[in-house]
């Protein structure tokens, strides 16, 4: 399988502060990479650079062989992105927001109808289709955000904390959705919830202070903790500070 997403020596500075420091990794089709780290580790900054929203200070992001900075249009077609907190235009209805995203993506009306129907069914949005987004529950809002991310059937999905703030049932639903899409796509999910790694990821990477600490299968991460360890132990051991 070719690597759909290639991150090479990615670095981002904000003034004197280095939020992301020399991170490299690749994600192949069929892989679900769990991007782990404590709050403030640089997860969102990395996700934003991968999505082409934030230009990197150094390093490159390539999606399907195209550089994110040099070919923004091509990249945006191949990439589905759920920003942190799933921001949405609150005054719009679900139907209108899907229609907007589809037409902004230049979809022909036939394809637009087909794709919109698909995501509505997939994320079970029928019942709220004509409601304003700001009146929806958190779970529904997140599902609308995910619908926007997969609307154009991208090969690469970048989901920033897709289950954050959801109740256990909603978390389960989102994870099931990610699992069913996993085969045909390369997926990166950022999270600070470790059970997520067990639940959906084929590979996990832990970062702290902008640096990559470990990258491997969930099993190899566990081996790191010794026999009796859990993922929590690995996480604390690697990212915990002595102060």
């Amino acid at each position: 399988m070719p690597a759909l997403l290639e991150i090479d020596r990615l670095t981002r500075n904000f003034g004197p502060f280095t939020a992301v420091d020399d991170i490299s990794f690749t994600v192949k089709q069929g892989e679900v990479l769990g991007f782990l780290g404590p709050n403030g580790a640089g997860k969102t900054t990395t996700m934003r650079m991968v999505a082409g929203y934030l230009p990197p200070s150094q390093g490159t992001v390539r999606i399907g062989g195209f550089d994110v900075q040099d070919h923004p249009r091509e990249i945006k077609r191949q990439l589905g992105y759920l920003p942190e907190g799933a921001p949405l235009y609150g005054e719009m209805t679900v139907d209108a927001i899907l229609h907007f995203a589809a037409s902004a993506r230049g979809m022909e009306s036939g394809i637009r109808r087909q794709r919109t129907e698909y995501v509505i069914e997939r994320l079970r949005l029928e019942s709220v289709l004509y409601q304003q987004v700001e009146t929806l529950s958190k779970g529904f809002k997140r599902r609308v955000g995910l619908a926007l991310a997969i609307l154009h059937d991208p090969g690469v999905l970048v989901l920033d904390e897709p289950t954050d703030g959801l109740d256990p049932n909603q978390k389960h639903e989102v994870r099931e959705l990610i699992k069913t899409m996993a085969g045909s796509k390369a997926i990166v999910i950022s999270t600070h919830i470790l059970e997520e790694v067990d639940a959906v990821c084929t590979r996990a990477m832990i970062i702290a202070h902008g640096r990559k600490l470990i990258d491997g299968t969930p099993a190899s991460l566990l081996a790191e903790a010794g026999n009796a360890g859990t993922l929590d132990d690995v996480f604390r051991k690697l990212t915990g500070r002595s102060e």
Binding site: A51, P72, P87, A104, R105, G106, L148
Partner: peptide
């Protein structure tokens, strides 16, 4: 403020 700029700027729109 609401973060929707991130949605807008990651659509294929310049």
């Amino acid at each position: 403020k609401t973060g929707t700029l991130e949605i807008l700027m990651t659509l294929p729109i310049s």
